[in-house]
Design a protein around this nucleic acid. Sequence first.
DNA 1: AACTCGGGGCA
DNA 2: TGCCCAGAGTT
Length: 219
Amino acid sequence: MKNNQQAPSQTIFKLLEEMYPDAHCELNFSNPFQLLIATILSAQATDRKVNQITERLFQQYTTPQKLLRLTQEELEQSIKEIGLYHNKAKNILATCRILVEKHQGDVPRNFEELTELPGVGRKTANVVLSNAFGIPALAVDTHVLRVSNRLGLATGKNPDLVEDQLKSLISRKKWSLAHHLLIWHGRRMCHAKRPECLLCPLQPFCSEAQSKASSAPHQ
DNA sequence: AACTCGGGGCA
DNA sequence: TGCCCAGAGTT
């Protein structure tokens, strides 16, 4: 643990809100089912590609019942522009079958039933809960993990523990906002490899910036 | 905890 | 070329 300057988490989140006043979910969605599918597709893929694919897909296949008209091979073809498409197509169709057979074609509204769906893990479940249903949730992905560690908001690489730490710092109403703020910061400035610490207003509170400053930068 | 899936974007 | 992308499942 570096002896970086400690700041109240409220200060950090306030600065993040000023930096990213427009932070929001960048996946297109008009209903819970479509957000669920888009989020399954988004694993290790760019959100821009996912938006392109889902925009096409949902023109015809707007519900699990309709999506099940596709064979796995046909679905694979329509999502082939992103990687991992074989597993994703298989998982999406299996998920659609469960939605139809056990949930009357609806998306369940709790973490346990969501994570029972093939292709839906802790991250996807939390995204659907917060963005589709407005249920307080804080999804911890690689960006949230990295940024919250650097800013001293959380410690460790276990997503469950980091989720608990972050939730304890923020009121329930702001869990989803905090998630999006940390994501946006991770994607726009606080990159894994070459974070733009010189431009970062949070630099005084950051262990990463401190360690970079004390070591000679190459290049 | 480490490994695999994976085509596309970007430097 | 090499690395990364709003992860999940298996070993």
